[in-house]
């Protein structure tokens, strides 16, 4: 096919003079900026999706039960009661060391040093849908007055919803960026059409089809937009790597060593970044084809 084409038309034969009419500066640079923004949007979407998944997997099936400090004897009874309740997979009181570690970010070492009366905290993992929380609360409070049952589920759901909204916003931003890129290509193509009006009329008069003329423009626009997309994606790479580096501790499974930054890039990004130049090229091709064909209808 390529060989055939080459035989028909010298590769460098630029009958419409598009090398100058569709310049190689402005269009690729603008598309590069769009691709850069698209990469950030992709990163935002990937990050939000990962966080939502992480929160949901890690915490959806969990409860915390607090037993007031003065009822320390009650804590053991509460644990026993919890373990006996259907729908609960595990219940374990956190040790003082665990608690101190949890609180250190807020209290420093002062928490344990001051010998604060901390409540006993029991981490509970649910099995399936878990028990009825209201009934559980009443039952545990009767066992050890002041006991509080706190479901992570509500918070996790809210956080996951937030993360999903962020993800949706990121996709929306991606769509807007694509639309702007298409407009940029359309404007550049129209400028090229205006600049080459006479040449187009001549070529049209020599019997060129709309397809022939549209191919010339689309070929050039595809190449320029693709190059811009590549440029933008490459420029985004270090930024994304840095972001991934920052996000890695949150996303990594507990206990595992943090991943090297490039490996921590979510799968969506690994697939999405190379797709940017391709997407930009596709936008260039489709937009130029449509713009040129619409414009040519004014010729008989």
């Amino acid at each position: 096919m390529t060989e055939h084409r080459r035989r028909r038309r010298p590769a460098r034969f630029d009958d419409l003079g598009l090398r100058r009419a569709l310049g190689d500066r402005m269009l690729p640079l603008l598309v590069a900026a769009m691709a850069f923004l698209a990469a950030l949007a992709l990163a935002g979407s990937a990050g939000a999706a990962a966080l939502a998944r992480h929160w949901q997997e890690g915490a959806a099936a969990a409860l915390t039960v607090q037993v007031p400090a003065d009822g320390t004897a009650g804590a053991a009874a509460v644990v026993a009661a919890l373990l006996a309740t259907p729908g609960i997979a595990a219940a374990q009181a956190l040790t003082d060391a665990d608690l101190a570690a949890l609180l250190r970010p807020w209290l420093g070492d002062a928490g344990s040093a001051a010998g604060l009366h901390l409540p006993a905290v029991i981490a509970v993992r649910l099995a399936g849908d878990g028990p009825d929380l209201a009934a559980l609360q009443t039952r545990l409070a009767a066992l050890a007055p002041g006991t509080l049952v706190e479901s992570h589920g509500v918070w996790v759901q809210r956080l996951a919803m937030l993360a999903r909204s962020l993800e949706a916003c990121a996709w929306l931003a991606l769509g807007v960026v694509a639309a702007v890129a298409a407009s940029v290509v359309a404007v550049a193509t129209r400028a090229g059409l205006a600049a080459r009006r006479e040449a187009i009329e001549i070529v049209h008069g020599l019997g060129a089809t709309d397809g022939y003329i549209a191919r010339r423009f689309a070929g050039r626009a595809t190449w320029l937009a693709g190059a811009g997309g590549l440029l933008g994606a490459l420029a985004a790479l270090p930024v994304l790597a840095a972001l991934a580096n920052l996000a890695a501790p949150f996303v990594a499974t507990q206990g595992a060593a943090p991943l090297p930054p490039l490996k921590a890039l979510p799968l969506l990004l690994v697939g999405g970044l190379p797709a940017l130049p391709l997407g930009a090229a596709a936008i260039g091709f489709v937009t130029a084809q449509a713009t040129v064909r619409a414009w040519l209808r004014r010729l008989s």
Binding site: R7, R8, P10, F13, D15, V203, L206, G207, A208, Y212
Partner: peptide
């Protein structure tokens, strides 16, 4: 015109 008509080079 020949190239537009798709003649071989």
């Amino acid at each position: 015109p020949l190239r537009i008509a798709g003649r071989t080079e």
